[in-house]
Design a protein around this nucleic acid. Structure first.
Lengths: 133, 133
DNA sequence: GGGAATTTCTACCATTTTAGTATGATTTAT
DNA sequence: ATAAATCATACTAAAATGGTAGAAATTCCC
Protein backbone atom coordinates (compact mmCIF):
# COMPACT_ATOMS: atom_id res chain seq x y z
CA UNK A 1 0.00 0.00 0.00
CA UNK A 2 2.55 2.51 -1.10
CA UNK A 3 2.77 5.49 -3.36
CA UNK A 4 6.00 5.02 -5.33
CA UNK A 5 8.76 7.59 -5.41
CA UNK A 6 7.51 8.62 -8.84
CA UNK A 7 4.36 10.01 -7.31
CA UNK A 8 6.01 11.44 -4.24
CA UNK A 9 8.81 13.11 -6.14
CA UNK A 10 6.40 14.44 -8.73
CA UNK A 11 4.53 16.23 -5.97
CA UNK A 12 7.78 17.63 -4.64
CA UNK A 13 8.78 18.83 -8.09
CA UNK A 14 5.41 20.44 -8.67
CA UNK A 15 5.43 22.21 -5.32
CA UNK A 16 8.95 23.40 -6.03
CA UNK A 17 7.81 24.82 -9.34
CA UNK A 18 4.78 26.37 -7.67
CA UNK A 19 6.99 28.07 -5.09
CA UNK A 20 9.11 29.56 -7.87
CA UNK A 21 6.24 30.35 -10.16
CA UNK A 22 7.37 33.70 -11.56
CA UNK A 23 7.21 32.89 -15.25
CA UNK A 24 10.91 32.11 -15.53
CA UNK A 25 12.15 28.70 -16.56
CA UNK A 26 13.73 26.80 -13.71
CA UNK A 27 16.64 24.46 -14.39
CA UNK A 28 16.14 20.85 -13.54
CA UNK A 29 19.33 20.66 -11.56
CA UNK A 30 18.13 23.40 -9.22
CA UNK A 31 14.88 21.55 -8.55
CA UNK A 32 16.75 18.30 -8.04
CA UNK A 33 19.19 19.92 -5.63
CA UNK A 34 16.50 21.62 -3.55
CA UNK A 35 14.34 18.50 -3.37
CA UNK A 36 17.25 16.15 -2.88
CA UNK A 37 16.48 13.93 -5.85
CA UNK A 38 19.02 12.61 -8.37
CA UNK A 39 19.14 14.87 -11.41
CA UNK A 40 18.75 12.01 -13.85
CA UNK A 41 15.79 10.60 -12.01
CA UNK A 42 14.19 14.02 -11.85
CA UNK A 43 14.47 14.12 -15.62
CA UNK A 44 12.25 11.09 -15.97
CA UNK A 45 9.64 12.53 -13.66
CA UNK A 46 9.56 15.92 -15.35
CA UNK A 47 9.34 14.17 -18.70
CA UNK A 48 6.08 12.52 -17.67
CA UNK A 49 4.77 15.76 -16.22
CA UNK A 50 5.63 17.51 -19.46
CA UNK A 51 3.87 14.96 -21.64
CA UNK A 52 0.80 15.36 -19.46
CA UNK A 53 0.89 19.07 -20.18
CA UNK A 54 1.51 20.05 -16.57
CA UNK A 55 4.83 21.76 -17.16
CA UNK A 56 6.30 23.75 -20.02
CA UNK A 57 9.93 23.24 -20.90
CA UNK A 58 12.54 25.21 -22.71
CA UNK A 59 15.83 23.81 -23.91
CA UNK A 60 19.10 25.60 -24.13
CA UNK A 61 21.27 27.76 -21.99
CA UNK A 62 18.69 29.54 -19.92
CA UNK A 63 16.09 26.85 -20.35
CA UNK A 64 14.25 24.85 -17.75
CA UNK A 65 10.73 24.14 -16.68
CA UNK A 66 7.76 26.07 -15.40
CA UNK A 67 4.12 25.43 -14.57
CA UNK A 68 1.68 25.59 -17.46
CA UNK A 69 -1.19 26.77 -15.28
CA UNK A 70 -1.78 28.50 -11.97
CA UNK A 71 -1.12 26.30 -8.91
CA UNK A 72 -4.79 26.38 -7.95
CA UNK A 73 -5.68 24.68 -11.23
CA UNK A 74 -3.75 21.50 -10.49
CA UNK A 75 -5.71 18.80 -8.69
CA UNK A 76 -3.32 16.63 -6.70
CA UNK A 77 -5.24 13.48 -7.60
CA UNK A 78 -4.63 14.16 -11.29
CA UNK A 79 -0.91 14.49 -10.74
CA UNK A 80 -0.75 11.27 -8.73
CA UNK A 81 -2.84 9.31 -11.20
CA UNK A 82 -0.63 10.54 -14.02
CA UNK A 83 2.45 9.19 -12.29
CA UNK A 84 1.02 6.08 -10.65
CA UNK A 85 -1.75 5.01 -12.95
CA UNK A 86 -5.01 4.21 -11.24
CA UNK A 87 -4.94 4.65 -7.50
CA UNK A 88 -7.35 1.75 -7.06
CA UNK A 89 -6.01 -0.28 -4.14
CA UNK A 90 -6.95 -3.65 -5.62
CA UNK A 91 -7.12 -4.73 -9.23
CA UNK A 92 -10.57 -6.26 -9.09
CA UNK A 93 -12.30 -2.90 -8.81
CA UNK A 94 -10.29 -1.23 -11.49
CA UNK A 95 -11.59 -2.49 -14.83
CA UNK A 96 -8.08 -2.69 -16.15
CA UNK A 97 -8.08 -3.39 -19.87
CA UNK A 98 -11.79 -3.92 -19.69
CA UNK A 99 -11.49 -7.13 -17.72
CA UNK A 100 -13.12 -7.46 -14.36
CA UNK A 101 -12.45 -10.22 -11.88
CA UNK A 102 -14.69 -13.17 -12.78
CA UNK A 103 -15.59 -13.66 -9.11
CA UNK A 104 -16.51 -10.05 -8.50
CA UNK A 105 -20.22 -10.80 -8.53
CA UNK A 106 -19.98 -13.31 -5.73
CA UNK A 107 -17.12 -11.66 -3.87
CA UNK A 108 -18.30 -10.02 -0.71
CA UNK A 109 -15.17 -7.93 -0.34
CA UNK A 110 -15.53 -6.02 -3.59
CA UNK A 111 -17.81 -3.32 -2.25
CA UNK A 112 -15.40 -2.79 0.61
CA UNK A 113 -12.56 -2.20 -1.84
CA UNK A 114 -14.67 0.08 -3.98
CA UNK A 115 -15.36 2.16 -0.90
CA UNK A 116 -11.66 2.41 -0.11
CA UNK A 117 -11.01 3.41 -3.70
CA UNK A 118 -13.57 6.14 -3.28
CA UNK A 119 -12.23 7.68 -0.08
CA UNK A 120 -8.70 7.70 -1.48
CA UNK A 121 -9.70 9.43 -4.68
CA UNK A 122 -11.98 11.89 -2.94
CA UNK A 123 -9.17 12.86 -0.62
CA UNK A 124 -6.52 13.39 -3.27
CA UNK A 125 -9.00 15.26 -5.44
CA UNK A 126 -9.84 17.67 -2.64
CA UNK A 127 -6.45 19.40 -2.78
CA UNK A 128 -4.82 21.58 -5.38
CA UNK A 129 -1.18 22.47 -5.69
CA UNK A 130 -2.04 25.85 -4.19
CA UNK A 131 -3.16 24.12 -0.99
CA UNK A 132 0.23 22.51 -0.54
CA UNK A 133 2.32 25.66 -0.64
CA UNK B 1 -0.87 2.13 -4.66
CA UNK B 2 -1.92 -1.45 -4.32
CA UNK B 3 -2.95 -3.84 -1.61
CA UNK B 4 -1.02 -7.05 -2.28
CA UNK B 5 -2.68 -10.41 -2.75
CA UNK B 6 -1.68 -11.27 0.81
CA UNK B 7 -4.07 -8.67 2.13
CA UNK B 8 -6.78 -9.35 -0.40
CA UNK B 9 -6.67 -13.09 0.02
CA UNK B 10 -6.56 -12.79 3.79
CA UNK B 11 -9.83 -10.91 3.67
CA UNK B 12 -11.30 -13.57 1.41
CA UNK B 13 -10.16 -16.31 3.76
CA UNK B 14 -11.55 -14.51 6.79
CA UNK B 15 -14.91 -13.89 5.15
CA UNK B 16 -15.02 -17.52 4.10
CA UNK B 17 -14.40 -18.57 7.69
CA UNK B 18 -17.00 -16.10 8.90
CA UNK B 19 -19.58 -17.52 6.50
CA UNK B 20 -18.90 -21.01 7.85
CA UNK B 21 -18.58 -19.97 11.45
CA UNK B 22 -20.33 -22.87 13.16
CA UNK B 23 -17.57 -23.92 15.52
CA UNK B 24 -16.32 -26.69 13.26
CA UNK B 25 -12.80 -26.70 11.85
CA UNK B 26 -12.75 -25.98 8.17
CA UNK B 27 -10.13 -27.62 5.97
CA UNK B 28 -7.76 -25.32 4.19
CA UNK B 29 -8.32 -26.98 0.85
CA UNK B 30 -12.02 -26.20 1.02
CA UNK B 31 -11.33 -22.54 1.66
CA UNK B 32 -8.76 -22.46 -1.10
CA UNK B 33 -11.13 -24.12 -3.55
CA UNK B 34 -14.03 -21.82 -2.76
CA UNK B 35 -11.92 -18.68 -2.91
CA UNK B 36 -9.92 -19.81 -5.92
CA UNK B 37 -6.52 -19.51 -4.27
CA UNK B 38 -3.67 -22.04 -4.51
CA UNK B 39 -3.75 -24.34 -1.50
CA UNK B 40 -0.09 -23.86 -0.70
CA UNK B 41 -0.37 -20.11 -0.88
CA UNK B 42 -3.43 -20.19 1.33
CA UNK B 43 -1.35 -22.07 3.90
CA UNK B 44 1.05 -19.16 4.16
CA UNK B 45 -1.74 -16.68 4.60
CA UNK B 46 -3.53 -18.71 7.25
CA UNK B 47 -0.22 -19.19 9.01
CA UNK B 48 0.13 -15.44 9.48
CA UNK B 49 -3.50 -15.15 10.54
CA UNK B 50 -2.93 -17.91 13.05
CA UNK B 51 0.17 -16.32 14.55
CA UNK B 52 -1.80 -13.11 14.94
CA UNK B 53 -4.37 -15.05 16.95
CA UNK B 54 -7.15 -14.47 14.44
CA UNK B 55 -7.79 -18.13 13.63
CA UNK B 56 -7.55 -21.31 15.64
CA UNK B 57 -6.19 -24.41 13.98
CA UNK B 58 -6.41 -28.11 14.55
CA UNK B 59 -4.09 -30.62 12.96
CA UNK B 60 -4.90 -34.10 11.91
CA UNK B 61 -7.56 -35.88 9.97
CA UNK B 62 -10.59 -33.76 10.72
CA UNK B 63 -8.58 -30.66 11.51
CA UNK B 64 -8.73 -27.27 9.93
CA UNK B 65 -9.23 -23.67 10.90
CA UNK B 66 -11.91 -21.58 12.50
CA UNK B 67 -12.33 -18.03 13.76
CA UNK B 68 -11.09 -17.33 17.26
CA UNK B 69 -13.69 -14.62 17.88
CA UNK B 70 -17.07 -13.50 16.60
CA UNK B 71 -16.97 -11.84 13.16
CA UNK B 72 -18.04 -8.51 14.65
CA UNK B 73 -14.89 -8.43 16.75
CA UNK B 74 -12.51 -8.34 13.81
CA UNK B 75 -11.63 -4.88 12.57
CA UNK B 76 -10.71 -5.05 8.89
CA UNK B 77 -7.90 -2.55 9.34
CA UNK B 78 -6.24 -4.85 11.85
CA UNK B 79 -6.35 -7.77 9.45
CA UNK B 80 -4.91 -5.70 6.62
CA UNK B 81 -2.15 -4.20 8.75
CA UNK B 82 -1.25 -7.68 9.95
CA UNK B 83 -0.77 -8.86 6.39
CA UNK B 84 0.60 -5.73 4.77
CA UNK B 85 2.45 -3.99 7.54
CA UNK B 86 1.68 -0.33 7.89
CA UNK B 87 -0.84 1.00 5.44
CA UNK B 88 0.92 4.37 5.33
CA UNK B 89 1.01 5.39 1.66
CA UNK B 90 4.46 6.95 1.83
CA UNK B 91 7.42 6.06 4.00
CA UNK B 92 8.14 9.53 5.29
CA UNK B 93 5.06 9.60 7.50
CA UNK B 94 5.55 6.13 8.86
CA UNK B 95 8.37 6.29 11.38
CA UNK B 96 9.71 2.99 10.14
CA UNK B 97 12.50 1.72 12.40
CA UNK B 98 12.38 5.00 14.26
CA UNK B 99 13.80 6.96 11.36
CA UNK B 100 11.90 9.85 9.89
CA UNK B 101 12.73 11.58 6.65
CA UNK B 102 15.32 14.28 7.37
CA UNK B 103 13.47 16.74 5.16
CA UNK B 104 10.10 16.17 6.77
CA UNK B 105 10.25 19.46 8.64
CA UNK B 106 10.66 21.50 5.50
CA UNK B 107 8.61 19.29 3.21
CA UNK B 108 5.29 20.85 2.37
CA UNK B 109 3.81 17.58 1.15
CA UNK B 110 4.12 15.71 4.43
CA UNK B 111 0.88 16.95 5.95
CA UNK B 112 -0.91 15.98 2.76
CA UNK B 113 0.40 12.43 3.07
CA UNK B 114 -0.47 12.26 6.73
CA UNK B 115 -4.00 13.21 5.84
CA UNK B 116 -4.19 10.46 3.24
CA UNK B 117 -2.83 8.00 5.76
CA UNK B 118 -5.58 9.07 8.12
CA UNK B 119 -8.51 8.67 5.74
CA UNK B 120 -7.27 5.24 4.67
CA UNK B 121 -6.92 3.97 8.21
CA UNK B 122 -10.19 5.48 9.34
CA UNK B 123 -11.95 3.77 6.48
CA UNK B 124 -10.52 0.32 7.00
CA UNK B 125 -11.07 0.62 10.74
CA UNK B 126 -14.74 1.44 10.26
CA UNK B 127 -15.63 -2.08 9.11
CA UNK B 128 -15.67 -5.40 10.88
CA UNK B 129 -15.77 -8.84 9.36
CA UNK B 130 -19.45 -8.94 10.20
CA UNK B 131 -20.04 -5.97 7.90
CA UNK B 132 -18.59 -7.83 4.94
CA UNK B 133 -20.80 -10.89 5.10
C1' DG C 1 29.59 30.04 -36.54
C1' DG C 2 31.29 27.96 -32.07
C1' DG C 3 30.77 26.69 -27.48
C1' DA C 4 28.38 26.11 -23.23
C1' DA C 5 24.25 25.02 -20.81
C1' DT C 6 20.31 22.78 -20.85
C1' DT C 7 16.54 19.48 -22.10
C1' DT C 8 15.29 15.04 -24.37
C1' DC C 9 15.64 10.31 -25.71
C1' DT C 10 16.86 5.60 -25.29
C1' DA C 11 18.79 2.05 -23.17
C1' DC C 12 20.55 -0.44 -19.31
C1' DC C 13 20.84 -2.42 -14.54
C1' DA C 14 20.81 -3.86 -9.58
C1' DT C 15 17.80 -4.69 -5.84
C1' DT C 16 13.53 -5.69 -3.75
C1' DT C 17 8.94 -7.27 -3.73
C1' DT C 18 5.40 -10.22 -5.24
C1' DA C 19 3.21 -14.30 -5.92
C1' DG C 20 3.63 -18.19 -5.81
C1' DT C 21 5.94 -23.72 -5.77
C1' DA C 22 8.14 -27.54 -3.68
C1' DT C 23 9.45 -30.65 -0.21
C1' DG C 24 8.94 -32.74 3.77
C1' DA C 25 7.95 -33.06 8.75
C1' DT C 26 4.40 -33.29 12.39
C1' DT C 27 -0.02 -34.15 14.38
C1' DT C 28 -4.48 -36.42 14.92
C1' DA C 29 -8.66 -39.38 14.17
C1' DT C 30 -10.02 -43.73 12.90
C1' DA D 1 -0.78 -48.26 10.69
C1' DT D 2 -2.63 -45.05 7.68
C1' DA D 3 -4.78 -41.25 5.74
C1' DA D 4 -5.75 -36.49 6.18
C1' DA D 5 -4.68 -32.49 7.61
C1' DT D 6 -1.58 -28.54 9.43
C1' DC D 7 3.16 -26.58 9.99
C1' DA D 8 7.81 -25.15 8.63
C1' DT D 9 11.27 -23.92 5.53
C1' DA D 10 13.40 -23.15 1.38
C1' DC D 11 13.37 -21.98 -3.36
C1' DT D 12 12.15 -19.35 -7.66
C1' DA D 13 10.32 -16.72 -11.79
C1' DA D 14 8.54 -12.42 -12.97
C1' DA D 15 7.56 -7.74 -12.20
C1' DA D 16 8.23 -3.36 -10.11
C1' DT D 17 11.22 -0.03 -8.14
C1' DG D 18 14.68 3.22 -8.13
C1' DG D 19 17.84 4.48 -10.20
C1' DT D 20 22.46 5.25 -14.03
C1' DA D 21 24.67 6.22 -18.42
C1' DG D 22 25.52 8.12 -22.82
C1' DA D 23 24.55 10.81 -26.40
C1' DA D 24 21.68 13.76 -29.32
C1' DA D 25 19.06 18.04 -29.94
C1' DT D 26 18.06 22.77 -28.81
C1' DT D 27 18.93 27.41 -27.46
C1' DC D 28 21.47 31.43 -25.96
C1' DC D 29 25.46 34.28 -26.07
C1' DC D 30 29.67 35.84 -27.85
Amino acid sequence: MKISTKGRYALKVMTDLALHNDGEYIALKDIAARQNIAVKYTEQIVSVLGKAGYVESMRGVSGGHRLAKAPSEYVIGDILRTMEGQLAPVGCTADIKGTTCPMSESCSTVSFWRGLDKVINEYVDSFTLQDLI
